[in-house]
């Protein structure tokens, strides 16, 4: 833990996969639903194919038809 500056949450973009966000986070969906996730790192789906959206379930690995 740094004594000099507050910890800034890290958001990491991956090549073709999810966005990795330091948890815990609250994710708000377009309809206003808020989802809480307190994992140390949360993988958010960017391909929109996840069956656990907004969380990644590795569905981005499937080739596009």
């Amino acid at each position: 833990m740094s004594a000099t500056e507050p910890r800034i949450p890290r958001v990491r973009l991956t090549e073709r996969g999810p966005v990795l966000v330091d948890g815990p986070v609250e994710v708000v969906l377009p309809d206003g639903t808020a989802m809480h996730c307190d994992r140390p790192v949360v993988a958010l789906c960017t391909c929109r194919r996840s069956r656990r959206f907004p969380f990644c379930d590795t569905s981005h690995r499937r080739r596009r038809p």
Partner: peptide
């Protein structure tokens, strides 16, 4: 494990 390991795979590789 579906969601947890989707995170872990990224963490392990990167």
């Amino acid at each position: 494990h579906v969601v947890a390991d989707a995170v872990h795979e990224q963490q392990v590789r990167l």
